[in-house]
Design a protein around this nucleic acid. Structure first.
Lengths: 232, 232
DNA sequence: CGTCAGGTTGACGTCTATCAACTACGGTGG
DNA sequence: CCACCGTAGTTGATAGACGTCAACCTGACG
């Protein structure tokens, strides 16, 4: 029911929430009229410190949300998939950057409008509250990964979480709309370690790697065991 | 203005929010009537999976919020100080454990009551939304630490964040109401690494360590540089 | 066919975990 | 009063996991 990033034992998409299940009802009408915006890969929706004018909903593609340090180190906080909302944080400025990982379409709503509605519509306000509390749960799960899990465990947890995105739970074929660099910066690993770990999982017969962007999950049980530290 | 855990460049307490600045006005009246509950060190308020019956406000002491893996690895998500709220997540069950790090007092409010009020009071609902979005920002900052920063950088960022708790900004004497083990599990380090890093900071003349629970910040500029990766 | 971004693999280095010994402190009880 | 014990913290030696540097491969695209 929740929307955690790296919680393989639970049943949640990796960030934000599935529109059909959790979208604030009070937002539906607003979205229908909103114009579609198209982004090329690597194009930004907004960057940290920008005035927080809109909230966005991903229609197609995928968005990475990330923070970056002065020396270039980057931490991806999550990936937003179609149906996910972006920019819910209640503050004057965006607190992170949002960038398309591939060709992406999204809709935007003026925050001022949402805020006005919410001031007279407790239902809507509570929906915002619920939506963001799902994001918090996702952040907490990712925190458990980056803080405590080994590289193998992190990648296993990541693949499990990804296998549960996009509706059908525990899909055999998982599509990864992001690069190895993105995965690395999400999990707190380097490109090389991510690549090596994928290879190890393939050698163990747990996954298949037809193309690098498409993973076949062959043994989901093993993946779950690994993610929970069943064996190091 | 925000409440981030490890964002030394910004000015926020480590988790939750300062009551006098951010507490939902609609909650004030509720709290005044609530009974005080006293907890010994290591006593739990609730554990993961418990029915989410109350939200709590810390009055004295400190609470650690943590997740734990089957094999005992623990990730502390944050520390709640006096004025901070606990258990805001919008779901049926608590998603983490809450445990006193020392003798602590807190007040609790039945969630059902808050929820009922919020359904008719958009102001209150929006306050909940704002409160939890601050927690999300805190989680994101911690994520940047555990995912990207070195041990030295993490401890520097942690000390900076702690120096900004408790009202007076950039206090020279910082009190740490948690053990080295707690700090380690918060930052994704071991006790030994935390201890060694404190020693290194002392040898560098950046902090003073009279007692292990009380840190004197001697050179806050150096701490900031370290936290942002100024020099590795 | 050349170029470039993305991905894989190998050799090596290093940061931090692990294992272990030791100190300091506080409480408890003889 | 002091011996004893448990918890917390520090420090040292060692090992291992992951990062770094580098070569190479692949596929897309002009």
């Amino acid at each position: 029911m929740l929307t955690n990033a790296l919680s393989p034992a639970q049943s949640m998409p990796a960030r934000g929430f599935r529109a059909e299940e959790f979208e604030p009802h009070g937002l539906d009408e607003h979205w229908s009229g909103a114009p579609v915006r198209r982004l090329e890969a690597k194009e930004h929706i907004f960057t940290e410190g920008d005035q927080r004018t809109h909230i966005y909903r991903v229609e197609k593609g995928a968005i990475s949300l990330y923070k970056i340090m002065p020396d270039g180190r980057r931490q991806i906080l999550g990936f937003a998939y179609p149906g996910d909302l972006i920019g819910l944080g209640a503050c004057e400025e965006y607190k992170f950057n949002a960038q398309a990982t591939k060709l992406t379409e999204l809709k935007g709503l003026r925050w001022a409008a949402i805020q006005n509605s919410a001031r007279h519509d407790p239902e809507l306000a509570l929906k915002l509250y619920e939506a963001i509390s799902l994001e918090l749960a996702a952040a907490h799960d990712l925190l458990l990964s980056t803080g405590q899990r080994s590289a193998l465990e992190r990648v296993a947890a990541f693949l499990l979480a990804m296998s549960r995105r996009g509706g059908g739970r525990d899909r055999v074929v998982v599509n990864l709309p992001m690069t190895r660099a993105d995965i690395g910066d999400f999990l707190g690993l380097t490109i090389e370690t991510v690549s090596r770990t994928f290879t190890k999982l393939r050698q163990l017969g747990i996954i298949g790697l037809a193309q690098s962007a498409s993973v076949h999950v062959l043994d989901i049980g093993a993946l779950q065991e690994l993610a929970e530290g069943g064996r190091a």
